[in-house]
Write a protein that binds this DNA or RNA. Structure first.
Lengths: 214, 214
DNA sequence: GGCGGAGGTCAACGATCGATGACAACGAGC
DNA sequence: GCTCGTTGTCATCGATCGTTGACCTCCGCC
Protein backbone atom coordinates (compact mmCIF):
# COMPACT_ATOMS: atom_id res chain seq x y z
CA UNK A 1 0.00 0.00 0.00
CA UNK A 2 3.08 2.17 0.01
CA UNK A 3 5.06 1.67 -3.14
CA UNK A 4 2.01 0.63 -5.10
CA UNK A 5 1.30 4.08 -6.39
CA UNK A 6 2.10 2.83 -9.85
CA UNK A 7 -0.63 3.35 -12.36
CA UNK A 8 -2.13 -0.07 -12.93
CA UNK A 9 -4.78 1.13 -15.31
CA UNK A 10 -3.77 2.89 -18.41
CA UNK A 11 -3.80 -0.44 -20.12
CA UNK A 12 -7.19 0.19 -21.67
CA UNK A 13 -4.79 1.17 -24.36
CA UNK A 14 -7.19 2.51 -26.93
CA UNK A 15 -5.40 5.76 -27.48
CA UNK A 16 -2.25 6.99 -25.83
CA UNK A 17 -4.31 9.51 -23.86
CA UNK A 18 -1.57 11.65 -22.48
CA UNK A 19 -1.21 12.42 -18.89
CA UNK A 20 -3.80 15.16 -18.80
CA UNK A 21 -7.28 15.61 -20.19
CA UNK A 22 -8.52 12.14 -20.78
CA UNK A 23 -12.06 11.70 -21.88
CA UNK A 24 -14.63 11.24 -19.17
CA UNK A 25 -15.71 7.93 -20.65
CA UNK A 26 -12.20 6.57 -20.49
CA UNK A 27 -11.75 7.61 -16.90
CA UNK A 28 -15.11 6.15 -16.00
CA UNK A 29 -14.31 2.80 -17.51
CA UNK A 30 -10.85 2.83 -15.95
CA UNK A 31 -12.46 3.35 -12.57
CA UNK A 32 -14.90 0.53 -13.21
CA UNK A 33 -12.13 -1.82 -14.25
CA UNK A 34 -10.09 -0.97 -11.19
CA UNK A 35 -13.15 -1.31 -8.98
CA UNK A 36 -14.04 -4.71 -10.39
CA UNK A 37 -10.56 -5.91 -9.61
CA UNK A 38 -10.35 -4.44 -6.13
CA UNK A 39 -13.87 -5.43 -5.11
CA UNK A 40 -13.33 -8.87 -6.53
CA UNK A 41 -10.07 -9.41 -4.76
CA UNK A 42 -10.63 -7.71 -1.43
CA UNK A 43 -14.40 -7.44 -1.12
CA UNK A 44 -16.50 -4.35 -0.63
CA UNK A 45 -15.13 -3.47 2.79
CA UNK A 46 -11.55 -4.30 1.95
CA UNK A 47 -11.38 -2.14 -1.16
CA UNK A 48 -11.05 1.57 -0.50
CA UNK A 49 -12.04 4.34 -2.84
CA UNK A 50 -8.56 5.76 -2.66
CA UNK A 51 -6.98 2.48 -3.70
CA UNK A 52 -9.40 2.04 -6.58
CA UNK A 53 -8.85 5.57 -7.82
CA UNK A 54 -5.12 5.12 -7.39
CA UNK A 55 -5.21 2.03 -9.59
CA UNK A 56 -7.10 4.01 -12.21
CA UNK A 57 -4.54 6.78 -11.94
CA UNK A 58 -6.96 9.47 -10.84
CA UNK A 59 -8.07 11.13 -7.65
CA UNK A 60 -10.64 9.55 -5.36
CA UNK A 61 -12.98 12.47 -5.73
CA UNK A 62 -13.70 11.48 -9.31
CA UNK A 63 -15.51 8.41 -8.07
CA UNK A 64 -18.12 10.70 -6.59
CA UNK A 65 -18.34 12.85 -9.69
CA UNK A 66 -18.90 9.86 -11.96
CA UNK A 67 -20.75 7.42 -9.73
CA UNK A 68 -22.03 9.35 -6.73
CA UNK A 69 -21.00 6.93 -4.01
CA UNK A 70 -19.02 3.80 -3.28
CA UNK A 71 -22.20 1.77 -3.27
CA UNK A 72 -23.16 3.01 -6.71
CA UNK A 73 -19.73 2.16 -8.03
CA UNK A 74 -20.02 -1.30 -6.53
CA UNK A 75 -23.44 -1.80 -8.07
CA UNK A 76 -22.19 -0.71 -11.47
CA UNK A 77 -19.56 -3.44 -11.51
CA UNK A 78 -21.59 -6.16 -9.87
CA UNK A 79 -22.04 -9.37 -11.70
CA UNK A 80 -24.51 -9.65 -14.48
CA UNK A 81 -25.91 -12.88 -15.82
CA UNK A 82 -24.40 -12.40 -19.25
CA UNK A 83 -21.58 -14.79 -18.47
CA UNK A 84 -24.15 -17.58 -18.17
CA UNK A 85 -26.00 -16.84 -21.37
CA UNK A 86 -23.95 -19.24 -23.42
CA UNK A 87 -24.69 -22.06 -20.97
CA UNK A 88 -28.37 -21.81 -21.76
CA UNK A 89 -27.70 -22.79 -25.36
CA UNK A 90 -25.26 -25.61 -24.74
CA UNK A 91 -26.56 -29.16 -25.28
CA UNK A 92 -26.97 -30.95 -22.00
CA UNK A 93 -24.27 -33.48 -22.75
CA UNK A 94 -21.82 -30.64 -23.28
CA UNK A 95 -22.56 -28.88 -20.01
CA UNK A 96 -19.62 -30.57 -18.32
CA UNK A 97 -17.32 -29.25 -20.99
CA UNK A 98 -18.82 -25.80 -20.60
CA UNK A 99 -18.28 -25.90 -16.84
CA UNK A 100 -14.74 -27.10 -17.32
CA UNK A 101 -14.13 -24.23 -19.69
CA UNK A 102 -15.79 -21.77 -17.32
CA UNK A 103 -13.56 -22.71 -14.41
CA UNK A 104 -10.45 -22.90 -16.57
CA UNK A 105 -10.41 -20.12 -19.08
CA UNK A 106 -10.62 -16.44 -18.61
CA UNK A 107 -7.97 -14.48 -16.80
CA UNK A 108 -6.63 -16.03 -13.61
CA UNK A 109 -7.79 -14.72 -10.31
CA UNK A 110 -4.66 -12.67 -9.86
CA UNK A 111 -5.60 -10.50 -12.80
CA UNK A 112 -9.36 -10.31 -12.86
CA UNK A 113 -11.35 -12.32 -10.36
CA UNK A 114 -14.58 -13.97 -11.35
CA UNK A 115 -17.59 -11.73 -10.80
CA UNK A 116 -18.89 -14.43 -8.50
CA UNK A 117 -15.95 -13.87 -6.22
CA UNK A 118 -16.73 -10.22 -6.02
CA UNK A 119 -20.12 -11.05 -4.60
CA UNK A 120 -18.78 -13.70 -2.27
CA UNK A 121 -16.06 -11.55 -0.86
CA UNK A 122 -18.59 -8.79 -0.43
CA UNK A 123 -21.22 -11.07 0.99
CA UNK A 124 -21.67 -8.80 3.95
CA UNK A 125 -23.58 -6.59 1.57
CA UNK A 126 -27.09 -7.90 1.67
CA UNK A 127 -28.09 -6.26 -1.57
CA UNK A 128 -25.25 -7.99 -3.38
CA UNK A 129 -26.32 -11.32 -1.93
CA UNK A 130 -29.89 -10.69 -2.94
CA UNK A 131 -28.96 -9.73 -6.45
CA UNK A 132 -26.76 -12.78 -6.78
CA UNK A 133 -29.57 -15.03 -5.61
CA UNK A 134 -32.01 -13.45 -8.03
CA UNK A 135 -29.58 -13.85 -10.90
CA UNK A 136 -28.98 -17.49 -10.11
CA UNK A 137 -32.68 -18.11 -9.73
CA UNK A 138 -33.47 -16.50 -13.05
CA UNK A 139 -30.77 -18.28 -15.00
CA UNK A 140 -30.64 -21.70 -13.39
CA UNK A 141 -33.88 -22.57 -11.58
CA UNK A 142 -35.62 -20.40 -14.16
CA UNK A 143 -34.46 -20.84 -17.70
CA UNK A 144 -31.99 -23.68 -17.43
CA UNK A 145 -34.33 -25.90 -15.44
CA UNK A 146 -36.86 -25.81 -18.26
CA UNK A 147 -34.52 -27.93 -20.31
CA UNK A 148 -34.21 -30.67 -17.72
CA UNK A 149 -36.35 -33.77 -17.69
CA UNK A 150 -37.20 -35.70 -14.59
CA UNK A 151 -38.22 -34.59 -11.12
CA UNK A 152 -36.96 -31.57 -9.18
CA UNK A 153 -35.66 -29.79 -12.25
CA UNK A 154 -35.20 -26.50 -10.41
CA UNK A 155 -33.32 -28.17 -7.57
CA UNK A 156 -31.01 -30.00 -9.92
CA UNK A 157 -30.39 -26.84 -11.89
CA UNK A 158 -29.42 -25.03 -8.71
CA UNK A 159 -27.17 -27.90 -7.71
CA UNK A 160 -25.42 -27.47 -11.03
CA UNK A 161 -24.98 -23.79 -10.24
CA UNK A 162 -23.67 -24.69 -6.80
CA UNK A 163 -21.10 -27.10 -8.20
CA UNK A 164 -20.11 -24.61 -10.84
CA UNK A 165 -19.61 -22.03 -8.15
CA UNK A 166 -17.75 -24.36 -5.81
CA UNK A 167 -15.48 -25.72 -8.50
CA UNK A 168 -14.71 -22.25 -9.77
CA UNK A 169 -13.93 -21.07 -6.26
CA UNK A 170 -11.68 -23.98 -5.45
CA UNK A 171 -9.78 -23.82 -8.71
CA UNK A 172 -9.39 -20.10 -9.20
CA UNK A 173 -9.60 -18.51 -5.79
CA UNK A 174 -8.27 -21.08 -3.36
CA UNK A 175 -6.20 -23.04 -5.87
CA UNK A 176 -6.23 -26.30 -4.00
CA UNK A 177 -3.35 -28.41 -5.25
CA UNK A 178 -5.02 -31.06 -7.40
CA UNK A 179 -7.52 -28.66 -8.94
CA UNK A 180 -4.80 -26.15 -9.58
CA UNK A 181 -2.67 -28.69 -11.36
CA UNK A 182 -5.45 -30.49 -13.20
CA UNK A 183 -5.53 -30.48 -16.97
CA UNK A 184 -8.68 -29.31 -18.67
CA UNK A 185 -9.22 -32.78 -20.05
CA UNK A 186 -9.01 -34.50 -16.68
CA UNK A 187 -11.19 -31.87 -15.11
CA UNK A 188 -13.82 -32.19 -17.78
CA UNK A 189 -13.76 -35.94 -17.53
CA UNK A 190 -14.59 -36.03 -13.84
CA UNK A 191 -16.97 -33.11 -14.02
CA UNK A 192 -18.83 -35.05 -16.69
CA UNK A 193 -19.04 -38.11 -14.49
CA UNK A 194 -20.84 -36.12 -11.81
CA UNK A 195 -22.82 -33.65 -13.86
CA UNK A 196 -24.16 -36.34 -16.14
CA UNK A 197 -25.58 -38.07 -13.11
CA UNK A 198 -27.12 -34.87 -11.90
CA UNK A 199 -28.70 -33.67 -15.11
CA UNK A 200 -30.05 -36.92 -16.54
CA UNK A 201 -33.04 -38.52 -14.88
CA UNK A 202 -32.28 -41.92 -13.53
CA UNK A 203 -33.47 -44.90 -15.45
CA UNK A 204 -32.74 -47.75 -13.11
CA UNK A 205 -33.46 -48.29 -9.45
CA UNK A 206 -29.93 -48.53 -8.20
CA UNK A 207 -29.27 -44.87 -8.85
CA UNK A 208 -27.58 -45.55 -12.15
CA UNK A 209 -26.98 -42.37 -14.07
CA UNK A 210 -25.29 -43.57 -17.20
CA UNK A 211 -26.32 -41.72 -20.32
CA UNK A 212 -26.29 -45.03 -22.19
CA UNK A 213 -29.58 -45.68 -20.51
CA UNK A 214 -28.86 -48.49 -18.14
CA UNK B 1 -26.04 -1.31 14.45
CA UNK B 2 -27.95 1.04 16.69
CA UNK B 3 -30.55 -0.82 18.69
CA UNK B 4 -28.55 -4.00 18.63
CA UNK B 5 -26.81 -3.28 21.87
CA UNK B 6 -28.62 -6.21 23.39
CA UNK B 7 -26.38 -8.79 24.92
CA UNK B 8 -26.43 -11.68 22.51
CA UNK B 9 -23.98 -13.80 24.41
CA UNK B 10 -24.71 -14.72 27.96
CA UNK B 11 -26.35 -17.83 26.63
CA UNK B 12 -23.34 -19.98 27.39
CA UNK B 13 -25.52 -20.48 30.39
CA UNK B 14 -23.34 -22.70 32.48
CA UNK B 15 -23.65 -20.67 35.62
CA UNK B 16 -25.67 -17.54 36.20
CA UNK B 17 -22.47 -15.49 36.31
CA UNK B 18 -23.87 -12.26 37.62
CA UNK B 19 -23.29 -8.96 36.03
CA UNK B 20 -19.84 -8.48 37.43
CA UNK B 21 -16.82 -10.67 37.89
CA UNK B 22 -17.31 -13.42 35.42
CA UNK B 23 -14.58 -15.94 35.00
CA UNK B 24 -11.97 -15.15 32.40
CA UNK B 25 -12.64 -18.41 30.62
CA UNK B 26 -16.33 -17.59 30.24
CA UNK B 27 -15.60 -14.18 28.85
CA UNK B 28 -13.02 -15.56 26.50
CA UNK B 29 -15.38 -18.14 25.10
CA UNK B 30 -18.17 -15.58 24.87
CA UNK B 31 -15.88 -13.39 22.82
CA UNK B 32 -14.94 -16.30 20.59
CA UNK B 33 -18.57 -17.22 20.04
CA UNK B 34 -19.48 -13.66 19.17
CA UNK B 35 -16.43 -13.38 16.93
CA UNK B 36 -17.29 -16.58 15.07
CA UNK B 37 -20.74 -15.24 14.38
CA UNK B 38 -19.65 -11.77 13.34
CA UNK B 39 -16.70 -12.93 11.24
CA UNK B 40 -18.85 -15.60 9.65
CA UNK B 41 -21.64 -13.25 8.78
CA UNK B 42 -19.79 -10.09 7.84
CA UNK B 43 -16.27 -11.22 7.09
CA UNK B 44 -13.05 -10.04 8.70
CA UNK B 45 -13.27 -6.46 7.52
CA UNK B 46 -16.98 -6.11 8.14
CA UNK B 47 -16.83 -7.24 11.75
CA UNK B 48 -15.51 -4.66 14.20
CA UNK B 49 -13.97 -5.38 17.56
CA UNK B 50 -16.49 -3.11 19.22
CA UNK B 51 -19.41 -5.00 17.70
CA UNK B 52 -17.99 -8.36 18.69
CA UNK B 53 -17.30 -7.23 22.23
CA UNK B 54 -20.74 -5.66 22.36
CA UNK B 55 -22.32 -8.96 21.40
CA UNK B 56 -20.35 -10.65 24.15
CA UNK B 57 -21.48 -7.99 26.60
CA UNK B 58 -18.02 -6.70 27.46
CA UNK B 59 -15.72 -3.89 26.52
CA UNK B 60 -13.65 -4.00 23.35
CA UNK B 61 -10.42 -3.68 25.30
CA UNK B 62 -10.85 -7.19 26.63
CA UNK B 63 -10.24 -8.57 23.18
CA UNK B 64 -6.70 -7.29 23.42
CA UNK B 65 -6.21 -8.60 26.91
CA UNK B 66 -7.35 -12.09 26.00
CA UNK B 67 -6.26 -12.40 22.38
CA UNK B 68 -3.77 -9.66 21.71
CA UNK B 69 -5.12 -8.46 18.39
CA UNK B 70 -8.02 -8.75 16.01
CA UNK B 71 -6.01 -11.05 13.81
CA UNK B 72 -5.31 -13.39 16.71
CA UNK B 73 -8.98 -13.47 17.58
CA UNK B 74 -9.82 -14.26 13.99
CA UNK B 75 -7.23 -17.02 13.87
CA UNK B 76 -8.57 -18.53 17.08
CA UNK B 77 -12.03 -18.94 15.60
CA UNK B 78 -11.02 -19.85 12.08
CA UNK B 79 -12.17 -23.12 10.74
CA UNK B 80 -10.54 -26.29 11.82
CA UNK B 81 -10.78 -29.56 9.97
CA UNK B 82 -12.62 -31.27 12.81
CA UNK B 83 -15.94 -30.83 11.08
CA UNK B 84 -14.69 -33.05 8.28
CA UNK B 85 -13.36 -35.82 10.48
CA UNK B 86 -16.57 -37.80 10.37
CA UNK B 87 -16.56 -37.72 6.57
CA UNK B 88 -13.30 -39.66 6.53
CA UNK B 89 -14.99 -42.60 8.19
CA UNK B 90 -18.19 -42.63 6.17
CA UNK B 91 -18.56 -45.42 3.59
CA UNK B 92 -18.25 -44.07 0.09
CA UNK B 93 -21.82 -44.90 -0.80
CA UNK B 94 -23.00 -42.83 2.14
CA UNK B 95 -21.00 -39.74 1.24
CA UNK B 96 -23.97 -38.20 -0.52
CA UNK B 97 -26.04 -38.58 2.61
CA UNK B 98 -23.22 -37.07 4.67
CA UNK B 99 -23.02 -34.08 2.33
CA UNK B 100 -26.76 -33.66 2.43
CA UNK B 101 -26.61 -33.69 6.20
CA UNK B 102 -23.69 -31.26 6.22
CA UNK B 103 -25.50 -28.69 4.12
CA UNK B 104 -28.78 -29.19 5.95
CA UNK B 105 -28.20 -29.64 9.64
CA UNK B 106 -26.52 -27.43 12.10
CA UNK B 107 -27.84 -24.03 12.96
CA UNK B 108 -29.02 -21.93 10.04
CA UNK B 109 -26.78 -19.23 8.73
CA UNK B 110 -28.66 -16.56 10.61
CA UNK B 111 -27.59 -18.02 13.94
CA UNK B 112 -24.17 -19.50 13.44
CA UNK B 113 -22.64 -19.53 10.01
CA UNK B 114 -20.57 -22.43 8.85
CA UNK B 115 -16.89 -21.96 9.63
CA UNK B 116 -16.32 -22.28 5.91
CA UNK B 117 -18.37 -19.16 5.34
CA UNK B 118 -16.19 -17.27 7.75
CA UNK B 119 -13.20 -17.99 5.59
CA UNK B 120 -15.06 -17.29 2.39
CA UNK B 121 -16.40 -13.99 3.52
CA UNK B 122 -12.95 -13.10 4.78
CA UNK B 123 -11.25 -14.40 1.68
CA UNK B 124 -9.46 -11.13 1.26
CA UNK B 125 -7.23 -12.30 4.09
CA UNK B 126 -4.48 -14.23 2.42
CA UNK B 127 -3.56 -16.16 5.52
CA UNK B 128 -7.13 -17.37 5.91
CA UNK B 129 -7.18 -18.46 2.29
CA UNK B 130 -3.89 -20.26 2.72
CA UNK B 131 -5.04 -22.04 5.84
CA UNK B 132 -8.26 -23.04 4.16
CA UNK B 133 -6.39 -24.45 1.19
CA UNK B 134 -4.04 -26.37 3.43
CA UNK B 135 -6.93 -27.78 5.41
CA UNK B 136 -8.76 -28.89 2.30
CA UNK B 137 -5.60 -30.39 0.87
CA UNK B 138 -4.92 -32.34 4.03
CA UNK B 139 -8.43 -33.68 4.45
CA UNK B 140 -9.59 -34.22 0.89
CA UNK B 141 -6.68 -34.59 -1.52
CA UNK B 142 -4.76 -36.09 1.39
CA UNK B 143 -6.67 -38.52 3.51
CA UNK B 144 -9.97 -38.83 1.70
CA UNK B 145 -8.36 -39.41 -1.69
CA UNK B 146 -6.61 -42.49 -0.33
CA UNK B 147 -9.95 -44.22 -0.17
CA UNK B 148 -10.81 -43.60 -3.81
CA UNK B 149 -10.11 -46.06 -6.57
CA UNK B 150 -9.53 -45.09 -10.15
CA UNK B 151 -7.49 -42.32 -11.70
CA UNK B 152 -7.04 -38.77 -10.41
CA UNK B 153 -8.10 -39.60 -6.87
CA UNK B 154 -6.84 -36.30 -5.49
CA UNK B 155 -8.62 -34.32 -8.16
CA UNK B 156 -11.89 -36.13 -7.61
CA UNK B 157 -11.58 -35.68 -3.86
CA UNK B 158 -11.12 -31.96 -4.32
CA UNK B 159 -14.05 -31.82 -6.67
CA UNK B 160 -16.12 -33.39 -3.91
CA UNK B 161 -14.90 -30.69 -1.57
CA UNK B 162 -15.75 -28.06 -4.17
CA UNK B 163 -19.27 -29.35 -4.58
CA UNK B 164 -19.70 -29.62 -0.85
CA UNK B 165 -18.59 -26.04 -0.52
CA UNK B 166 -20.72 -24.78 -3.38
CA UNK B 167 -23.82 -26.60 -2.25
CA UNK B 168 -23.38 -25.40 1.31
CA UNK B 169 -22.93 -21.84 0.12
CA UNK B 170 -25.96 -21.88 -2.12
CA UNK B 171 -28.22 -23.49 0.43
CA UNK B 172 -27.16 -21.74 3.61
CA UNK B 173 -25.66 -18.44 2.60
CA UNK B 174 -27.42 -17.43 -0.58
CA UNK B 175 -30.55 -19.52 -0.09
CA UNK B 176 -31.46 -19.86 -3.72
CA UNK B 177 -35.13 -20.77 -3.94
CA UNK B 178 -35.11 -24.44 -4.91
CA UNK B 179 -32.21 -25.33 -2.61
CA UNK B 180 -33.78 -23.39 0.20
CA UNK B 181 -37.06 -25.23 -0.16
CA UNK B 182 -35.63 -28.67 -0.90
CA UNK B 183 -36.29 -31.51 1.47
CA UNK B 184 -33.33 -33.42 2.82
CA UNK B 185 -34.50 -36.51 0.96
CA UNK B 186 -34.72 -34.80 -2.41
CA UNK B 187 -31.40 -33.10 -1.84
CA UNK B 188 -29.70 -36.34 -0.91
CA UNK B 189 -31.21 -38.10 -3.89
CA UNK B 190 -29.79 -35.71 -6.44
CA UNK B 191 -26.52 -35.26 -4.61
CA UNK B 192 -26.15 -39.01 -4.72
CA UNK B 193 -26.75 -39.04 -8.46
CA UNK B 194 -23.83 -36.72 -9.02
CA UNK B 195 -21.47 -37.75 -6.25
CA UNK B 196 -21.78 -41.41 -7.09
CA UNK B 197 -20.62 -40.61 -10.58
CA UNK B 198 -17.71 -38.64 -9.24
CA UNK B 199 -16.44 -41.04 -6.62
CA UNK B 200 -16.80 -44.36 -8.41
CA UNK B 201 -14.41 -45.15 -11.22
CA UNK B 202 -16.16 -45.65 -14.49
CA UNK B 203 -16.59 -49.15 -15.76
CA UNK B 204 -17.88 -48.60 -19.26
CA UNK B 205 -16.70 -46.43 -22.08
CA UNK B 206 -19.71 -44.23 -22.39
CA UNK B 207 -19.01 -42.53 -19.10
CA UNK B 208 -21.42 -44.70 -17.18
CA UNK B 209 -21.12 -44.18 -13.48
CA UNK B 210 -23.69 -46.53 -12.09
CA UNK B 211 -22.59 -48.33 -8.94
CA UNK B 212 -24.31 -51.44 -10.20
CA UNK B 213 -21.32 -51.84 -12.45
CA UNK B 214 -22.70 -51.31 -15.91
C1' DG C 1 -7.34 36.95 -26.72
C1' DG C 2 -10.47 35.95 -23.51
C1' DC C 3 -13.91 32.90 -21.57
C1' DG C 4 -16.60 29.10 -20.00
C1' DG C 5 -16.91 24.59 -18.86
C1' DA C 6 -15.20 20.00 -18.42
C1' DG C 7 -11.62 17.02 -16.28
C1' DG C 8 -8.94 16.57 -12.35
C1' DT C 9 -6.53 17.72 -7.84
C1' DC C 10 -6.37 19.06 -3.14
C1' DA C 11 -7.41 19.73 1.68
C1' DA C 12 -10.38 18.87 4.93
C1' DC C 13 -14.67 17.04 7.51
C1' DG C 14 -16.75 13.73 10.67
C1' DA C 15 -16.99 8.99 11.63
C1' DT C 16 -15.10 4.72 12.68
C1' DC C 17 -11.46 1.67 12.99
C1' DG C 18 -7.70 -1.14 15.75
C1' DA C 19 -5.09 -0.55 19.62
C1' DT C 20 -3.20 1.27 24.26
C1' DG C 21 -2.77 2.53 28.95
C1' DA C 22 -4.68 4.43 33.10
C1' DC C 23 -8.08 3.51 36.33
C1' DA C 24 -12.19 1.42 38.94
C1' DA C 25 -14.58 -2.64 41.09
C1' DC C 26 -14.42 -6.92 43.03
C1' DG C 27 -12.89 -11.37 45.52
C1' DA C 28 -9.53 -14.44 47.66
C1' DG C 29 -5.78 -14.88 51.02
C1' DC C 30 -3.26 -13.19 54.95
C1' DG D 1 -9.36 -5.16 57.45
C1' DC D 2 -5.97 -4.69 54.34
C1' DT D 3 -3.71 -6.04 50.24
C1' DC D 4 -3.02 -7.72 45.72
C1' DG D 5 -4.12 -9.85 41.53
C1' DT D 6 -8.00 -10.43 38.46
C1' DT D 7 -11.76 -8.55 35.71
C1' DG D 8 -13.63 -4.98 33.30
C1' DT D 9 -14.40 0.08 31.88
C1' DC D 10 -13.14 4.44 30.05
C1' DA D 11 -10.80 7.95 27.50
C1' DT D 12 -7.98 8.46 23.96
C1' DC D 13 -4.54 7.98 20.24
C1' DG D 14 -3.29 7.83 15.34
C1' DA D 15 -4.74 5.98 11.07
C1' DT D 16 -7.96 5.36 7.58
C1' DC D 17 -12.42 5.48 5.85
C1' DG D 18 -16.30 7.72 2.69
C1' DT D 19 -17.50 12.07 1.29
C1' DT D 20 -17.58 17.02 0.09
C1' DG D 21 -16.60 21.50 -1.80
C1' DA D 22 -13.18 24.75 -3.22
C1' DC D 23 -9.78 25.19 -6.43
C1' DC D 24 -6.70 24.43 -10.45
C1' DT D 25 -5.72 23.36 -15.50
C1' DC D 26 -6.46 22.83 -19.91
C1' DC D 27 -9.20 22.83 -24.47
C1' DG D 28 -12.65 24.48 -27.74
C1' DC D 29 -15.28 28.37 -29.09
C1' DC D 30 -16.71 33.26 -29.74
Amino acid sequence: MDGSRVKAKDDTGERPARARKNSAADTRSALMAAAALRFGRYGYDGASIRDIAGDAGVDAALVYRYFGSKEALFASVSMDTAIFDSLLEVPLDEVAAWVSDFVTNGPPDEEIPHPVLSVLRSSSREDAVRQFRDNVAEVFSGRFAERLEGPDAELRAELLAAWLLGTSLMRKAFRTPALDAATTAALESHLRAGITGLLNPRTCECGCTCPCGV
